[in-house]
Amino acid sequence: MRLILLMVLAALLSGCGYNQIQQKDEAVNAGWSEVLSQYKRRADLVPNLVNTVKGYASHEQQVLTQVTEARAKVGQINVNADDVASLAQFQAAQGELSSALSRLMAVVESYPNLKADQAFLNLQTQLEGTENRITVARGRYIQLVQDYNTYIRSFPQNLVAMMFGYKTRPNFTVENEAQIQDAPTVDFGSSAPEAPPQPAPAG
């Protein structure tokens, strides 16, 4: 009799979306892991990037320091994707690193020898690819969270979700998403800026 009741209960839970909740929850977890992996990949590139630029533009200390500090701040955050405040802090730190990298890339335009350095070109390619992967991973995560949240808020799955303690999960907010949406510009195809005209010698 007990076995029959368990089988009936399992059938009811399955019909009410319990198994689908598990699958969607795991998909969100996997999507978040991919987001973290790609952001870590970018952070790991920063020290080599800074050192390479420093070899040609050591006097650009302010920009180099900003990138290093932004990277350090990212590494200090223990993000919890289920906590709104923690996720917002994580996004803000990643946005600061994106902005710092953008400023660094703008500085690089003034150093044609650096732009021709093979080590730098390799880093450029890796950074560009990583920024693309971040965009893809973040976009996929947004969709997975939206799908999960919509599912557990719909009837009758919402009853099962409440019964087992499943709650909606925070997502990238519009404000912070706008802050980190634009990847740093890493296109070095343009020529170096022309030197300003020199004043004619007095005579």
Rank of each mutant, 00 (worst) to 15 (best):
E96Y: 00
R71W: 03
L49E: 03
K54E: 08
Q62N: 07
V63L: 01
Q157P: 05
E109L: 03
D147S: 12
T173R: 01
L6M: 08
R138N: 02
L3W: 14
A27C: 03
A178V: 03
T130H: 01
A116H: 07
G129A: 02
F172S: 06
A195F: 10
Q91R: 05
P197D: 12
T173D: 06
V186H: 01
V28R: 01
H59Q: 12
Y151T: 07
S33M: 06
Y166N: 14
P196F: 01
F155A: 03
P197V: 12
Q181W: 14
R103K: 14
A57H: 04
T135M: 14
T185E: 06
K115R: 15
Q38I: 07
L144T: 04
D117V: 00
Q62H: 09
P170M: 04
R42G: 08
R133L: 10
Q76E: 13
L12W: 15
N122D: 07
L6C: 03
Q198Y: 02
V79G: 10
K73G: 03
Q38A: 09
L64C: 06
A57N: 09
A30Y: 02
T52E: 05
V8H: 06
S98I: 02
P193T: 03
Q143P: 01
F155L: 04
Q20N: 15
A70D: 03
E109D: 12
L97V: 09
A81L: 03
Q89S: 14
T130S: 13
A30R: 07
Y39L: 14
D147K: 08
Q61V: 11
P199E: 15
T130K: 00
A27H: 07
P170G: 02
G55R: 02
S102N: 15
R153H: 12
P170L: 03
